[in-house]
């Protein structure tokens, strides 16, 4: 910032701290509007904010879903989430990123995951948001168990999710040529 004292005069905290980059694992629901407001606070630099919300669907693999149970590896999950955010920061110029992932019992229609990213212009935040989601899907240590009328079943890892992650590596390779 050109005139840091200006921020102080206006009562705006313009210091960049790692608090702009946060991860949370929780059982409680989250509210997009509230998270969005907290995330941006008094940040006037961010001309662009991207958000993604993942929700529980009522159908999966031709079976109605009655309930979902999410478990995770406490410690490793947060570590991987922070690593993914760091990798996004290395690729794009971001002002902040917030990732919230829920665990425990969830019903169809409930929110599971939230990703918020902010940057000066739209491409950085949109791409970083997609990058973070694609890497969370294949690396963050969460597991879903579905309850269907036919009984309980553990959700299997999807090949399409691995491909979605690998497209970022393909982009790296094409950029190097």
């Amino acid at each position: 910032m050109k005139w840091p004292f200006l921020g102080q005069l206006l009562g705006v905290d313009v210091t960049e701290t790692t608090e702009c980059f946060t991860v949370r694992v929780q059982t409680e629901p989250f509210e997009l509007g509230q998270e969005f407001d907290e995330f941006l606070a008094d940040d006037r630099r961010a001309g662009a904010v991207a958000s993604f919300v993942g929700r529980v669907r009522d159908m999966n693999d031709d079976q109605p879903i009655q309930k979902l149970e999410l478990e995770h590896y406490p410690g490793m999950t947060e570590k991987v989430m922070r690593q993914v955010i760091q990798e996004a920061q290395d690729r794009w110029s971001l002002f902040g990123a917030r990732v919230i992932h829920r665990v425990g019992p969830l019903a169809p229609g409930e929110n599971i995951v939230l990703v918020l990213t902010s940057s000066a212009h739209r491409h950085a935040s949109l791409d970083a948001c997609a990058f973070i989601m694609d890497h969370l899907k294949t690396r963050a240590t969460f597991w879903k168990k579905e309850q269907t009328p036919a009984g309980e079943r553990w959700v299997k890892g999807r090949h399409s999710d691995t491909e979605a992650q690998q497209r970022w590596q393909a982009k790296d390779a094409s950029n190097e040529q």
């Binding site: 989601m133 963050a140 969460f142 597991w143 553990w154 999710d161």
Partner: peptide, 10 residues
């Protein structure tokens, strides 16, 4: 040491 199946979060 932790053992598990491929992750399915998100």
């Amino acid at each position: 040491v932790a053992f598990f199946r491929p992750v399915t979060g998100g």
